[in-house]
Design a protein around this nucleic acid. Sequence first.
DNA 1: CTCCTATCCTGCGAGC
DNA 2: TGCTCGCAGGATAGGA
Length: 292
Amino acid sequence: MPELPEVEIVKLGLEALLKGSHQILKIEMSSKKLRRFPSLKNLAQVKGEEIKGLKRVAKYILFELENFYMISHLGMTGSWRFLEEKRTHDHVRVFLDDGRVLVYHDPRRFGQFDLIGKKLFAQDKRFLHLGFDPVLEPEIDLNAFIEKMKNKSCTIKSSIMDQKNIVGVGNIYANEALFRAQIHPKTPTHQMKLKQWKTLIIEIKNVLFEAIQAGGSTISDFRQAGGSQGYFQNHFFVYGRENQLCRKCRSVIESQPIVGRSSFWCPSCQPYSKIKKTKARRREKSIRKKTT
DNA sequence: CTCCTATCCTGCGAGC
DNA sequence: TGCTCGCAGGATAGGA
């Protein structure tokens, strides 16, 4: 479950391991399909190109080559390692001119590996409608942002996980940021007050920065580019803590899926009672009636 | 246009 | 012990 901090950590690790100039001799793909994979033509054309540098765009890692971008998205279980031996679920092998082989491993294959010509990059749908990056561009026009969000009926949790609004926040950090900002995850987006938005954006930045400092969060699969673990999972206030005591007020942490994703909150730090009856809540009630 | 749901995929752990 | 089943979730296609 790599989110912005984990992707940033992987990118920094790769950057360190790829210091100096490196040429790509060839790229081998496994026969199993990833969410995205390059055309045979691009795979052939990329031979001999040099890796000039790495960038993170949202949850994507971009290897800047001479004429291409090599695009990596870790999906749920993706990881990069320098390895010789073949393992199951190794899907991409990038052979470098110094003899090393950079291997992309991804059991669940939710990830992407792609090659795209630099000229086509600007119009690629994956990168066209991205929201602001809380780490790379921490200063935003708050009024314009709130204006964009004010008519949204969906929950605040899905709004901050929507890459069109803010990039890099996934399920874990959405839960954690909402706890820190003392906002219930089911709050309808249009009900958010100016002060709540200010606090929430600050807490999103805080939690992402702190997670990067801790080397990311290692939940089952995540590994840094060198294979080591992150430690931020030890600092979760709510994620995965259903029925445990709130670290701030000792109330019992609640959990329930919200738009299909597991969600956790403290009922007294993030009270639901403040929320007025809304379309969203009425709809939820009618769904409950149907299922009982 | 916006909103919302289903889908992809494998490993793991709970329950019997 | 060994089996089945449900869940984990980022992005996206397609339906309402």
